[in-house]
């Protein structure tokens, strides 16, 4: 009986360390930036506190960004971004969760072109998206790079006609994250 108990206990411990230390990769300082280009004005916001988790076994990836962390050169734009467009007090987070479609082994070093299918939630409106990017596995780190577009209208972000000439209908988003093995709790 004791043997069974010991085996079970050992298994429990093994499960804990195995799952938390080697399967999950994490970054809390991912860079996410967006650009709005119009002939009249260029607007760019950038954050380097985006959080992301990647499960190398299920190939699931998740990004969560606090909207208020986006930094603008012009603080008035930053206030408008949060107050009028993102409504950050109502919808504080922008969220993406998806699964890498290619059956790649993320434990093997290399650079992989990936297609991630999932849900993008901005301004409280969820959209099914397929986003492409690059994943580099090297030196125990996983680097995720991606550029994609976000349409304001897709997420019910209304731009008043008065400033419609200054804000692009479609924003370019770039993501740059370096994930490290998540430390065991």
């Amino acid at each position: 009986m004791k043997k069974i108990f010991l085996t079970l206990a050992a298994l429990s411990t093994l499960a804990l360390t195995n799952l938390s230390a080697q399967v999950l990769y994490k970054a809390s300082n991912a860079e996410v930036a967006f650009f709005s280009k119009t002939p009249l004005e260029n607007i760019d916001g950038k954050t380097n506190t985006a959080t992301t988790l990647l499960n190398v076994e299920t190939r699931e990836v998740a990004f969560v960004i606090q909207n208020i962390s986006f930094n603008f050169p012009n603080k008035l734009m930053q206030e408008h971004f949060n107050e009028k467009y993102m409504e950050s007090e109502k919808f504080p987070l922008s969220i993406f969760k998806g699964t890498i479609q290619e059956k790649i082994d993320l434990k093997v070093a290399g650079t992989y072109k990936v297609t991630v299918k999932g849900k993008l939630n901005i301004h409280g409106v969820e959209q099914e998206r397929t986003i492409t990017g690059t994943i580099t596995v090297a030196d125990g780190k996983i680097t995720v790079n991606s550029t994609f577009k976000v349409k304001n209208a897709d997420h019910k972000i209304e731009i008043p006609s008065l400033v419609a000439t200054k804000i692009a209908e479609e924003l370019d988003v770039t993501v740059n994250a370096v994930l490290v093995p998540k430390a065991a709790k």
Binding site: A15, L16, L19, T51, L53, A62, V64, E79, E83
Partner: peptide, 26 residues
């Protein structure tokens, strides 16, 4: 419990981590 924990949604942890008090704007 351990196995269940492993299947937990990746988002839960991230959302919790981002639940920070921020200044009220405007």
């Amino acid at each position: 419990v351990n196995m269940a924990w492993a299947q937990d949604d990746l988002l839960d942890e991230l959302v919790l981590e981002n639940k920070k008090a921020t200044p009220v704007l405007a």
